[in-house]
Design a binder for these strands. Structure first.
Lengths: 165, 165
DNA sequence: CCAATCTCAGAAGTACTGAAATGG
DNA sequence: CCCATTTCAGTATTTCTGAGATTG
């Protein structure tokens, strides 16, 4: 008749003892660390509603206003899911949605001044989170890791862009 | 009135154009590649019901029979979620669940011969998937990447195990 | 008529929480 | 009485699918 004990259920920080076959498996390592990363980021970031908010705001800030479909394409997010996300950003005054005068099918999404401020705040928190995530590595190792990961992402994109010759 | 066109909704393989601020962000890279990895694995693996099935079967094969709580601890999976997973493995004849004679609170989970066979089959498919995932890297780069990722995982475990000195 | 955009509604997979029931 | 184990039910979050409505 335990009430609320549950000594250790799965506890996010609980040490795992993965089978040998998984320990060096890239897909397992990536999934494991992605989960770890998300948990760490969640503890550091206060201002973040959903995880893709930062990506959307950053994209708007860097590349300028865009239609929803355009945004979805840039970030590889589902167009439908973007609807609710932008509703929230709109409600919080971080982004604005207005009809495109040139093509009345589109909405033009713009980041607001408040959006830019929270973008900066989130960026600070996220950087702190990266430091904890990468704590086990020294500077050189961090650079190497990032280069390798980024290379994989870029190369996969390239392959997807140009179908097999 | 489009019927089923939807040229590109978000398309898993669709090239993304992430903001600069995210391009080199470890947490973004890890999440992006974890997703990519899962999609690739899904296309290669036929025999896999859920993604953690492989981990459970491998753990049973390597470390031997275990109770559910023991398994959950080893793999850092929620005990509750393990219930449904083991139900499936049981239904498919890949694992057996029997009460522990010594401690009647426990179930002893054992992998079956059929379980070992599918374990091997899944392992083959997963290896093929890793090759596609790591295609952008040469052998040396792959080894470096795996070492770095594994080092991170191990170190995070160690820190979680022994509270801050 | 076809294509693209925005929107809504719902399914599916996964992760986490709380609690009940049994037994040590 | 307290702790551990299995199980169930419910919540939350994310991702994906299908379709409707508007406009080009």
């Amino acid at each position: 008749m335990a009430k609320s004990n549950d000594s250790a259920r799965s506890a996010p920080w609980a040490p795992a003892d993965p089978p040998e076959r998984l320990r060096r498996l890239p897909s397992w390592l990536l999934n494991h660390l992605a989960g770890r990363s998300n948990r760490i980021v969640a503890t550091y970031v206060e201002h973040l509603g959903r995880r893709s908010d930062y990506a959307v705001l950053a994209s708007l800030d860097e590349t300028g206003p865009a239609s929803q479909a355009e945004l979805a394409r840039r970030l590889a997010i589902d167009r439908g899911d973007l609807v609710g996300l932008l509703n929230r950003l709109n409600d919080e005054g971080l982004a604005e949605r207005r009809p495109d005068p040139d093509d009345r099918r589109r909405n033009v999404i713009t980041i607001t001044a408040a959006g830019r401020r929270t973008l900066v705040a989130i960026g600070r928190d996220i950087q702190a989170a990266q430091d904890e995530l990468l704590a086990p590595l020294n500077a050189a190792q961090r650079a190497t890791l990032i280069d390798l990961l980024q290379h994989m992402v870029d190369h996969h994109h390239a392959e997807a862009a140009e179908p097999p010759a």
